[in-house]
């Protein structure tokens, strides 16, 4: 039985990809790479890390595709791999930072926000910074400062196509906890970006 949001042709692609059909694998990559990248970027906060995560996730997916349950959503399964890989990367980076004596101040202030730009940087004054930095970049930096567990839930919420049950399954937490983390993530983002309130209108 196929899940309601699964394209029947996806099962055909997966069956071919299991047997090494390069065109089928390429098709899967092109269908889901953007969603995978967006989730990875929101969790890792760095484009180069996000691309590495996407590469690793697809390699892992093609390695273990034979065990994928037919009829389930490939995207949900792939995003689980992406999210886990991205969180692993964050943990590894945190361990490296903690171990490094030279990087005791990792650029985050006590609120978990990135330090303001130093003088002489491109953004010499807060006013100039606001003018130059787009809303998207400010948002990306704000999301990158969330705790990892909130970041993961927010990244999957932002996908827009997953149900809350999918998100709960990917992250491995109950739905109530999904909603709580999402609420606190959005609240924190709103507090950090409050000065941009006139710019942030609900999109219709």
């Amino acid at each position: 039985m196929t899940a309601p949001n699964v394209d029947p042709s996806e099962d055909v692609l997966i069956a071919r990809a299991v047997h090494g059909d390069a065109d089928a694998r390429r098709e899967l990559f092109e269908r889901f790479r953007e969603a995978a990248y967006a989730a990875a970027l929101r969790v890792t906060g760095r484009p180069e890390d996000a691309l590495d995560v996407v590469q690793d996730a697809f390699i892992k997916a093609f390695e273990s595709l034979a065990g994928f349950a037919r009829g389930a959503s490939f995207k949900t399964w792939l995003l689980r791999i992406v999210t886990n890989r991205a969180l692993d990367l964050l943990r590894a980076a945190k361990v490296r930072r903690a171990a490094s004596l030279d990087q005791r101040n990792d650029g985050q202030d006590r609120d978990g926000l990135p330090d303001p730009p130093a003088r002489g940087d491109e953004y010499e004054t807060p006013g100039a910074g606001l003018e130059r930095m787009e809303l998207g970049e400010r948002l990306a930096r704000a999301v990158a400062s969330l705790p990892p567990e909130q970041r993961a839930v927010f990244a999957l919420y932002a996908d827009g196509e997953l149900t809350y049950a999918d998100i709960a399954k990917i992250v491995g937490i109950p739905i109530g906890t999904v909603m709580s983390r999402l609420f606190h993530a959005r609240r924190r983002l709103t507090e950090m970006l409050g000065d941009l309130a006139p710019t942030m209108r609900r999109k219709d």
Partner: peptide
Amino acid sequence: SDPLVQAP
């Protein structure tokens, strides 16, 4: 429609 969500 969430203003906190921007496509990267």
